[in-house]
Write a protein that binds this DNA or RNA. Structure first.
Length: 429
RNA sequence: GUGCCCAUGGUGUAGUGGUAACACAGCAGGUUGUGGUCCUGUUAUCGAGAGUUCAAUUCUCUCUGGGCACCCCA
């Protein structure tokens, strides 16, 4: 035994054995059901794209060292997609001009990022991507938020298990302007935003130091602090009256009112600490949080990004979307004990063993007959004593066993045994 | 890129400076047509390499692999 190959999956990827696949399918099916209910249309793009479309705007890491790239036969740099947004934007630019607006699109696809795997994060992962293109109206922001909420509610989660936190880049820009950060160069401004992003993780002292390093003056920091500490949108409007006509602020107020009137009031909150790393967001931004102490984390987020299409040389168009991942969703379901019911939702299966070698042919034909009637029939492949057959069905959690042996053949019948109750029914062949 | 933890049959674990125990799963049988219980048998060069030692699975080092946190991302 030399040079044996490893049977382990490549780092950061995973096999999907049937048991795990059931969970994944349940998540995907739920996602798809809700999207279709909203009239979103499903699409898919290639697994690989020109590496440049990620290098352009996906950020230093995702578009850089985390990119999985190779060279094709023509010497072109290709990458396995690390996210969907550039791909779907590329696709939409081809049809945008002539397409009836708005476009409501979704996809469920896999991605790769060359990261260090850890809890809730793999190198290969799957995401649902939902986007609306071609409408800058606030109703599209509302619909996207509503869709995100309904996707969570489709899993029938317990009370108070998650929340959707809303903020706005327009509002944050207003705050930065108030604090004089607008005049900072791009790099310094980014540093300010990054610092805000860490608001809850860093100590107050460190935050002050960082903001100072970015070039903010003392009185400016007071504005930022007031903003970051505001408990709700009304309090913010009172504390910083200069913002009262800020478009971001007004939009958040309107959207939250609308969501409340639609019955989502319990799940939503204004949260100034929601920033999100991407530069291309320029309107509403939001994050969905798992509130379980065991798994207290941002599950996914999204927002409005109206400025991405220009990398393909066309004029920009309005866009807003979000993307939940398979692993974060699974952790959410797991943390609230919601995985058990998935097993129960499986369709009924029948096991049809070959009880006598001489009946092999007849058994195969019986399986065909039952399948034609729409039953899910698992065929035995080798002669099996009845005891073994029942044992097998037990261990595989197969609900029904079809019994067809010499006795049954003589009477031209077969029996279906229910493995839970043990009851048997007879049927004529 | 930084830090911490871990590595024993298929899986989950125990254990010891003198080559390993238990549970579960698998297969075969006890049981030539009615299961989930029970019983028996069977399944490991203790991640790799080097060092210390009469002797290393056990101690030390290196490597490899895995996990977690940070960074980043969501």
């Amino acid at each position: 035994m030399k040079n044996v190959l490893s049977n382990q999956e490549p780092k950061g990827t995973r096999d999907w054995l049937p048991e795990e696949f059931i969970i994944r399918k349940y998540i995907f099916d739920s996602w798809r059901r809700v999207c279709l209910r909203y009239g979103f249309e499903e699409y898919l793009t290639p697994l690989v794209e020109s590496a440049d479309i990620y290098r352009a705007k996906s950020g230093e890491d995702i578009g850089g060292k985390e990119l999985v790239t190779f060279t094709d036969l023509g010497g072109r740099d290709l990458s396995i997609r690390p996210e969907m947004t550039p791909s779907v934007t590329r696709m939409v630019t081809k049809i945008y001009a002539a397409a009836p607006k708005p476009l409501k699109y979704f996809s469920i696809a896999n991605f790769m990022r060359n990261e260090k795997p850890q809890r809730g994060r793999n190198r290969e992962f799957w995401q649902l991507n939902c986007d609306i293109f071609g409408s800058a109206a606030l109703t599209s922001d509302l619909e996207i938020l509503q869709l995100a909420l309904d996707i969570m509610l489709e899993f029938d989660p317990p009370q108070d298990s998650f929340s959707l936190a809303i903020s706005s880049r327009e509002l944050i820009d207003g705050v930065l302007e108030l604090s004089g950060a607008k005049e900072l160069d791009q790099e310094k401004k980014l540093l300010v935003v990054r610092t805000l992003d860490k608001w809850q993780k860093l100590k107050a002292e460190d935050i002050k130091i960082r903001l100072q390093e970015a070039g903010l003056k003392k009185e400016a920091m007071a504005v930022i602090e007031t903003f970051m500490k505001s408990q709700n949108i009304e309090a913010l409007a009172l504390a910083l009256p200069a913002l009262k006509n800020n478009q971001g602020l007004l939009k958040i107020i309107k959207i939250m009112e609308d969501l409340e009137s639609l019955g989502y009031g319990d799940f939503i909150e204004f949260n100034p600490t929601v920033i999100r790393g991407f530069d291309y967001y320029d309107g509403i931004i939001f994050e969905v949080f798992d509130k379980n102490p065991e798994n207290n984390r941002a599950m996914f987020g999204g927002g409005r990004y109206n400025g991405l299409a220009e990398i393909f040389g066309v004029s920009n168009f309005p866009a807003i979307g979000f993307a939940p991942g398979d692993e974060t969703t699974r952790l959410f379901l797991e943390s609230w004990g919601m995985l058990d019911k998935i097993i129960l939702e499986q369709p009924i299966k029948y096991y049809l063993p070959i009880l006598d070698k001489n009946l092999t042919n007849e058994t195969i034909h019986l399986a065909k007959t039952l399948r034609v009637r729409g039953l899910n029939v698992i065929s035995g492949l080798e002669e099996q004593k009845i005891g073994k057959a029942l044992d097998f069905a037990n261990k595989k959690k197969i609900a029904k066993v079809v019994i067809y042996g010499t006795e049954e053949k003589e009477k031209s019948i077969y029996k279906i045994k229910d493995m839970d109750g043990g009851s048997e029914e007879m049927f004529n062949i």
